[in-house]
Structures are given as structure tokens and as C-alpha cells.
């Protein structure tokens, strides 16, 4: 902002500057490496703790459902992976925005490392959903709006994974993948609202922000614990991969000091 134009509101201006400083401060790869190394054990062990409690409770102690019987226990994996599939893609899109607008080196690396983990979550969501569909609905797969839009999300992940690695010049790969990630964001609201906008074989969501959950509490608690465990596990995996990626950049810089910077970072 040029000096001649005074900021409209002094407080909002300083707030923006402070937020910007905050992001610049923590988005530095070296600093991120140190912080994530320090918090990694806490994230990893709490992820293991909550996942074991949640899945153990869901598998052995929660009651069978009145219509689905014991097959309802697949839900304790299906729902957390479904949420992570969408949340992971949202994170990928934020990285893409950061790559295109602010050209943050950490955002580039994060996009590269989040996508494979998110793709695995989406694959798990599709596989467990299909394994639940066969005994419940009577079919492994139908082309309804919910199932198809999640399959599209999986292909978006695969496209991102290959596009970001497809270029000799790494920066061009990051930018192309960022554009794909941002364009694919349209799929997220489609997934979320597909069961409300169109009639589908998949049932509407049981947990929403607007009304009381239509799950009995004896099933809701193990579900919440496994959602927490899986989310922490997702973070732990991304942290570990991102730390390895930061070290690998450093290794490339030491091994090939004469290379252009865009081929290293």
C-alpha cells in the first residue's frame, strides 16, 4: 500500500499485517521442521490412542443397529475416512491458493505430501462403503450422485499426484497442480449436498450442523472418537512426510549446488 493513502481502519490494517507476519513466520520450511519435530510424538501417540479406543469400542462394545445389524460397525471407518477425504482436498486447495498467490515453498511441499494421504483416505472410504453396500443395499456399486462425486474426488487426487510430478521444472508442476486443486474444489459442495439435491441410494448425512444427530449416543461416541483418532493420524502422517520432504530439499541443495533453484525446491 503506497504511503500517500492512509489505511482506512488502523486496527484492521495492523491485524492484517500481524496475520501476514504470523503466516510468514510459521510457513518458513526450516522453522516448520523444528516445530513439527517437537509436536510429532504428541500427535502420533494421541492418534494411536484415540483410534484404538474408537475402533475397539465400535467393533466390540457398541450395539448392533436395528436395521443394519453388525455391519453398522463398518461405519466407524467409513465416516472418518469420508470426512478426511473432503478435508484433505480442502487443505490441498488452500495449498494451491498459497502456491499461486503467495508462492510459499512450504505450500508446494505440503500439496505434494497431502495428496497421497488424502487419496488413500478416499480409497478407504470407497472400499469400505462398497463392502457395506453389498450386504445392506444388495450391490457393491451404483452410479448415484454421492458415490459418483466421491469417485471423481479420488480421480482428482490421482490427477494431482501425477501432475505435480510431471514437470522437469518443479515450479511449473506446483502451479499446474495448484490450478487442478482449486478447480476441483467445486466437487466438495457437490459431495456434501448430493444426498439433499438429488434422490440417491446413499442415505442423507446423520450428523449435520443444523439438526440433532440421528444416531443413538451409544454409537455416536465411538464414532466421534474414531473421527478424532483418524484426523490426528492424518496430521501425523502429513507431518512426518513433510519433514522428510524438507530434509530431501536440503539434501538436493547440498548434492547439486550448481543446479537452478527451481529444480531443487
Amino acid at each position: 500500500m503506497p504511503d500517500s493513502i492512509p489505511p482506512r481502519s488502523c486496527t484492521s490494517h495492523t491485524m492484517i499485517t500481524r496475520t501476514r507476519h504470523f503466516f510468514h513466520y510459521y510457513a518458513n520450511p526450516g522453522r516448520f521442521y523444528h516445530i513439527s519435530t517437537r509436536i510429532q510424538p504428541y500427535v502420533t501417540y494421541s492418534a494411536l490412542f484415540f483410534t484404538f479406543i474408537g475402533l475397539g469400542w465400535g467393533l466390540f462394545f457398541s450395539p448392533p443397529d436395528w436395521q443394519q445389524g453388525d455391519t453398522v460397525r463398518i461405519m466407524y471407518i467409513h465416516v472418518p475416512t469420508a470426512i478426511l477425504a473432503s478435508a484433505g482436498y480442502a487443505a490441498l486447495a488452500l495449498c494451491g491458493l498459497s502456491t499461486l498467490v503467495w508462492q510459499h515453498p512450504l505450500a508446494n511441499l505440503a500439496a505434494m505430501e497431502i495428496a497421497p494421504v488424502g487419496a488413500c483416505a478416499t480409497a478407504l472410504c470407497l472400499i469400505t462403503g462398497s463392502l457395506r453396500g453389498k450386504p445392506m443395499w444388495g450391490t457393491y456399486w451404483v452410479w448415484d450422485a454421492r458415490l459418483t462425486s466421491v469417485l471423481i474426488l479420488f480421480f482428482l487426487y490421482l490427477g494431482h499426484i501425477s501432475l505435480i510430478r510431471a514437470f522437469e521444472d518443479k515450479q511449473r508442476g506446483y502451479q499446474a497442480a495448484a490450478i487442478l486443486a482449486l478447480a476441483g474444489v467445486i466437487d466438495l459442495p457437490i459431495i456434501k449436498f448430493s444426498v439433499d439435491w438429488w434422490n440417491t441410494l446413499h442415505q442423507p448425512d446423520s450428523i449435520t450442523l443444523t439438526r440433532a444427530p440421528t444416531i443413538s449416543r451409544s454409537m455416536l461416541w465411538p464414532l466421534i472418537l474414531s473421527m478424532l483418532g483418524f484426523s490426528l493420524g492424518f496430521c501425523a502422517l502429513v507431518f512426518a512426510r513433510l519433514r522428510a520432504a524438507i530434509l530431501e530439499v536440503r539434501i538436493r541443495a547440498l548434492l547439486f549446488p550448481s543446479h537452478r533453484r527451481s529444480n531443487i525446491v
Binding site: 443394519q68 444388495g138 440421528t214 444416531i215 443413538s216 454409537m219
Partner: peptide, 18 residues
């Protein structure tokens, strides 16, 4: 030629339903 069952979004133990 094919029948698919749809289940709704309510989850409850059998005893509660009974």
C-alpha cells in the same frame, strides 16, 4: 430384475427400536 434396499440415516440399537 433387481431390488436394492435403501437404509435411512437413523442409527439406533435394536432394543431402542423395539
Amino acid at each position: 430384475s433387481e431390488v436394492l434396499a435403501k437404509h435411512d440415516e437413523t442409527y439406533m440399537p435394536k432394543e431402542v427400536a423395539d
